[in-house]
Design a protein around this nucleic acid. Sequence first.
DNA 1: TTATCTGGATGAAAGGTTTCAACAGCGTCC
DNA 2: GGACGCTGTTGAAACCTTTCATCCAGATAA
Lengths: 358, 358
Amino acid sequence: MSVDDAETLPERPRRRRTPKPHAAGVKAVAAAAGVSLGTVSNVLNRPEVVSPLTRAKVESAMASLGFVRNESARQLRAGSSRILAYLMLDAGNPFFTDVAKGVEEAAQAAGLSVFLCTSSEDADREAAYLDLLEQQRVQGILITPIDQNSSRLRKLPSRGTPVVVVDRALDEAEHCSVAVNDILGGELAISHLLELGHERIAYVGGPNTIGQVVDRREGARRALRTAGKPAADLIELTTGALTVAEGRGAGQRLAGLPADRRPTAAFCANDLLALGLLQQCVSLGLRVPEDLAIVGYDDIEFAEAAAVPLTSVRQPRQLLGRTAAELLLDESSNPDHEHQRVTFTPELVVRTSTRGTL
Amino acid sequence: MSVDDAETLPERPRRRRTPKPHAAGVKAVAAAAGVSLGTVSNVLNRPEVVSPLTRAKVESAMASLGFVRNESARQLRAGSSRILAYLMLDAGNPFFTDVAKGVEEAAQAAGLSVFLCTSSEDADREAAYLDLLEQQRVQGILITPIDQNSSRLRKLPSRGTPVVVVDRALDEAEHCSVAVNDILGGELAISHLLELGHERIAYVGGPNTIGQVVDRREGARRALRTAGKPAADLIELTTGALTVAEGRGAGQRLAGLPADRRPTAAFCANDLLALGLLQQCVSLGLRVPEDLAIVGYDDIEFAEAAAVPLTSVRQPRQLLGRTAAELLLDESSNPDHEHQRVTFTPELVVRTSTRGTL
DNA sequence: TTATCTGGATGAAAGGTTTCAACAGCGTCC
DNA sequence: GGACGCTGTTGAAACCTTTCATCCAGATAA
């Protein structure tokens, strides 16, 4: 058709994609309030510099348009995020949620928000979350790593995302870390059992890729050596994870041994294992602590409320989280920050599961 | 100096702020690989359209420059986020972390990531997180709300952020919801106690701003009425939160009553309360279930492992989370999505805390 | 040989915010 | 009455990516 001949127009009005996914932006607010774009931004970010009258106009325009600030755009331009992330090993373990509580406390005090992520002890998920968080340009990452010498983890700080390692002590060349002295914790547990006269002692924990599992075992061995016994005396039961279910499995294995070869005491790498172990032993007819003394680790809230209140190695969980967050904040705000490794000291809490009813 | 006279230049090179906070962007990668900007983007988003050779060049440039995609910019332009958030009431309660596990399962299957947030039963924090998440333009929000008729919550979907309410049944005009029938759960618990012959039954729960607390009590009352008793027979102990500590407090109050007025059974609004109650009662010399039968709610892992294994009303926790996430995904991808309310049925698990050792 | 097609690469525009140098009024001071 | 400050406001640039219409070169068909 001849109508097409009108194509001589220098500029056809190239119609672009018009998704209009969300709602009004600063531009619309500015128009509605009869002010400039920059003023709206000032109302948002530096309300004190704009006159009360203008501010009121802008605020009412925002309210009536249902304006929601686009954080992506803000962050893209301003270059900073008000979010910090804690990548936990396992949200089902009260230990980590207590740490998280400490983190949130410190973050809130500094006006930041916290996103929690869980790797569920899966290295791939951990890696995926690290990538995601780095791409999000979060202000910093707190992590209890599965794989503590992951190259991904080491590279993060050099690219601008501060990392603080929680509950592990790494070389502090790259990042700060907060931890509890797990070797000492293991020693405390085993010396306690040795003092009670136990000779056949089991260590229940695994997998060995988890640093805590290794360190607590190492502490256990040291305590044996200190008492003049060969470290090989420690009977090791390796589990696939630090969960109640795995604890039950270990209980099954223990209870199946003939009484003269069965350990008289078990030190578990955490309370979940200990609770599972306890439950299974009791239900299979072993008496605790008469037939088997049990020591847990972490002293979570439920350890105290267990069938037989658990002797456990207590860690300052919230303090751990709070300190970690504070280190992170320091790293991202203080220009002459220096990495440090903070180590807390664990404490043995003796209850019925080892001491009996005395 | 006369040199200054050269100011006739039409454009002075206005030097802007150059913070260079992070690292190399697509532009740098493109330059290093000797390709255009668009090609780099294609490698990132549609690798199949770029020739293997070019792709390899780009990928190696990325690796050597340590390129990290800027998610803010991506999201700003592309308009979509690959993240979904679950705003929980309390991360310390295993019930919610189990729900979270279900959510993550479903999200992972759909290629999304999950950020967890906790309001810690604080309405201000809930509001702050909702604002934050909306500003982040997350793909959608799963929430167990404190304040279920918050206007904030109602406005979210109309502005483009889908919301699914978890563990509460709201009017489905605005959003989908998944819940367990809490009224039925309350009935199950109380009918069980009535069958066992209990006459003075306490309900332990609070605060009354929490819907579950109210519904479970309502169920309890219904069961009484069904049995031909006045609902006012229910002895109510209001707590400040659903925690072990509050449960202990309730135990203190209960144990303080003279035996002839003290309830012979207590139904707790959740297992944490029940565990606290149990522990306190036992330590104050009350026998469970002989002096006081206890029924919990949720059937968390620790209920089974308690001093006296707890009778509890079980909820399909992971299923709850998975279903909620699936509804959310449907809402944000399926154009003719319809809001629905999914209700699951709870199940009474009878254990020693009510049935005794028989 | 020329016209047509195709797989790949290109480059400019767009997305919503913050930033900051410049500017407009207006009252003060000499 | 002109120079000067001070307060508030403005407008354009910049942040980094994705998108998409266009372009190019080489292959195939006519």
